[in-house]
Design a protein around this nucleic acid. Structure first.
Lengths: 235, 235
DNA sequence: TATAACACTTACAGTTATTGAAAGATTTAA
DNA sequence: TTAAATCTTTCAATAACTGTAAGTGTTATA
């Protein structure tokens, strides 16, 4: 869906080397991508997310915060496809990056066509990924966490939004605490359960304000479950 | 649009007298409205908005902040219909309230049916009011200020959202600075113009991040104008 | 070109929102 | 009854949003 012009896919390039950065930018611009470059690496992951890009190209060796950190944070806070481009060719670096959520790992120097192929491949892979989850008239914008129910709409805070996204996409089914941990904090390891509970309480209250009361039920010892329609029950 | 149950209209009652409050609540509950009562009057307008009600019933004589203040703030921050219910029957109070944006002004004691009639009337009047403004594929949720363009979505901060709402609903037409002042700060009187400019700059930057560059043009000495399609111009 | 009015940008500080930690209350299952 | 699990409330740290201030650009007209 678009207007006058086609909406270009937007790529954010995170690379400290000026020459390399310009080179990349020019390659992609020729291929009709819209490019944003990060040039200050103080709040990198935040800056990346602010651009709301369609894809991120990330160098691992950066001044300040490590690229791995950035990779983890970005993939934790959003689901944008992320390609790591680096001069390190250690196998364990590659595994580490992929573990942190990177979608691709390419080592420099990298042939232009190879890079372009990976990028368009990644974009295609993410294309279909629907923008909304909808169940029984409850509709959630996966990106902004705007929730639509009947005539109402409300923007959920990030954590509540993530919880809701999980619940909706597994509605009437159990979502385990581990799944929530992974989604909210990017790890399956033990995080104070209370943090999850507090956020769950907050979400319940928020849902109450738009009349989705009693929709989240607790599965003792397992997790939580969203009851999709009023007056329906399911174990 | 609804699921299992009908979505009730939600009314927030702001009344400090316990008896009166319960009375009102019971009247409306019998008529199948969902009711929330404000019982602490420290952050009243904020609490009202948090409930995202369909209608507000506001007593003017409250402990702490005056009802007029609350009226102004609420109508300034949202477009929820607001009915003032009070024991003051001075004409100038009525005019004052209506000036501050109140939609109805009823004096106590008020007959139940009269009240119900006004309420359902107000709700009907606001019903049609479309939830979204859309022009040329640019769609804005008037309530949450979530902006949709192509595959992208982004939540605008309140001020940017209000500016965008005005621009969209008068797209390709001049929106004067006075209109912005009224919308953002609820007054036509002189407010530091710079405040508007700063917010305008911020909006332009935000729009840039989703490729709506150069869409806001300045009409020197008058105001601003949103160009609805790329490559179109209009004075 | 000069100049004055108007518009824009950037940085900063006050305020508000969001968050996890902590501690205690409540519920549940056996 | 009791212990584990879950829930709730409060608090402080962090991040987001906002208007102010001060300086920089731009435009129209003489």
């Amino acid at each position: 869906m678009s207007k006058g012009g086609i909406i270009l896919k937007k790529i954010v390039i995170v690379e400290d080397d000026l020459f390399m950065r310009e080179e990349l930018a020019s390659i992609f611009m020729k291929e009709k991508y819209a490019i944003s470059c990060i040039t200050c690496f103080q709040h990198t992951s935040k800056d990346i997310l602010k651009e709301s890009p369609d894809l991120v190209i990330l160098d691992i060796n950066l001044p300040g915060a490590t690229g791995f950190e950035i990779c983890r944070t970005v993939k934790q806070k959003s689901s944008v496809p992320l390609l790591v481009l680096t001069s390190r060719d250690q196998m364990r670096d590659e595994l580490h990056a992929l573990n942190l959520g990177a979608d691709e790992y390419l080592t420099k120097p990298c042939h232009k066509d190879r890079l372009l192929a990976r990028v368009s491949n990644l974009l295609r892979r993410y294309e279909g990924r629907n923008h909304f989850v909808e169940v029984q008239g409850i509709r959630l914008d996966r990106k902004t966490y705007t929730l639509y129910v009947g005539e109402r709409s409300i923007v959920l805070p990030e954590n509540q939004g993530k919880i809701m996204e999980l619940l909706l996409s597994h509605s009437d089914d159990i979502v385990t605490k581990e799944m929530f941990f992974k989604k909210l904090w990017g790890t399956t390891e033990y995080i104070d359960e209370n943090a999850l509970q507090v956020n769950m309480t907050r979400l319940k209250k928020t849902l109450g304000s738009i009349f989705l009361n009693e929709r989240i039920i607790t599965i003792r010892g397992k997790g939580y479950c969203l009851v999709s329609s009023e007056g329906m029950k399911n174990d």
